[in-house]
Simulated scan of single mutants.
Amino acid sequence: MQSPEAKLEQLGIVLGEPKAAVANYLPYVISGNQLFISGQISMGADGLVHGRLGENMTTEQGQAAARLCAINLITQMKGALGSLDRVKRIVKLGGFVNAAPDFVEIPQVINGCSDLMVDAFGDKGRHARSAVACPVLPLGVAVEIDAIVEFE
């Protein structure tokens, strides 16, 4: 079985340094054998991905933004646990999409994150999830996603 880090490398994904919190909260908290990761926003090497789905972004652009959130979540996992091999299960994702009032493809947008979790972690990446629309997100980003992860 291939490690999550090897799978990410095959996908051309290089994990950088975990992002610091931008306000009065911690990037993650460990309680027992669970890792609670604060919301990770759609930010990549080129900066923040701003926009509102159904207004000035397509579903596909939203999925790409959600994938950036997944990369940032995985980066936090590695920073907190030292190795992605310690991940026992992605338990739950909470997805938030900056969306126009009539945009209804919220689950499809968050699939951009969910799909990468399964690609990286296999069956351990299958998770429970919520996906909701918001009229605005911090810093005007398109997507924000948080996670609960079980580890050993």
Rank of each mutant, 00 (worst) to 15 (best):
V29W: 00
L15A: 09
K7A: 08
F121G: 06
V49M: 10
Y28V: 05
G32H: 00
G32W: 00
P18S: 07
A100I: 06
C134K: 09
T59M: 14
V141K: 00
V149L: 04
E17A: 14
V22A: 04
S42W: 00
G54E: 05
D146T: 12
G82M: 08
G16R: 04
V87C: 06
I145L: 09
K78Q: 15
G44S: 11
A128C: 10
A147S: 11
V29D: 02
K124P: 06
I106W: 02
D102W: 03
P27H: 03
Y28T: 05
A99W: 01
E5D: 12
T75E: 11
V22H: 08
V149I: 12
T59I: 13
G82S: 09
V97L: 06
V109M: 05
G140H: 02
L35K: 02
E152F: 02
F96W: 11
P27S: 04
V14F: 02
G95A: 11
A80M: 13
A100Q: 13
A64R: 13
N56I: 02
N72Y: 03
L11E: 14
H50M: 07
P4H: 04
L93M: 13
I13H: 02
E60T: 07
F96I: 13
I71G: 14
E60C: 04
E150S: 12
K88T: 07
A45L: 07
Q10D: 10
C113W: 05
V143S: 09
A65L: 12
N56C: 04
A20D: 15
A64D: 15
P107W: 01
L8T: 01
V91Y: 04
I41V: 08
F121S: 05
A131S: 11
E9S: 12
G47Y: 01
V14Y: 00
A70H: 05
A142K: 03
E152G: 10
T59F: 06
D115V: 08
E17D: 15
L137N: 08
P135D: 10
V104N: 14
V29I: 06
D123A: 09
S31E: 15
K92C: 06
A133W: 02
A128V: 08
Q34F: 08
A70Y: 03
A120L: 08
V141S: 03
K92Y: 00
M1L: 03
L26I: 00
V22Q: 08
D115H: 06
K78M: 07
S3P: 09
P135G: 13
R126G: 09
M77G: 14
R86E: 12
N33S: 13
G125S: 08
L139A: 12
V141Y: 00
L139P: 08
I106M: 09
S83A: 12
N24A: 15
V141C: 10
G44C: 06
A120T: 12
V136F: 02
G122H: 11
G32Q: 00
A80N: 15
Q108D: 15
D102P: 12
V29E: 10
P18R: 01
P107R: 07
Q63F: 01
R89S: 04
G125Y: 01
I110D: 12
R86Q: 13
A142I: 06
L26H: 11
L26C: 03
T75C: 15
I71V: 15
G140K: 07
S42F: 01
R126L: 11
A65P: 15
V118Y: 04
L93F: 11
I145N: 10
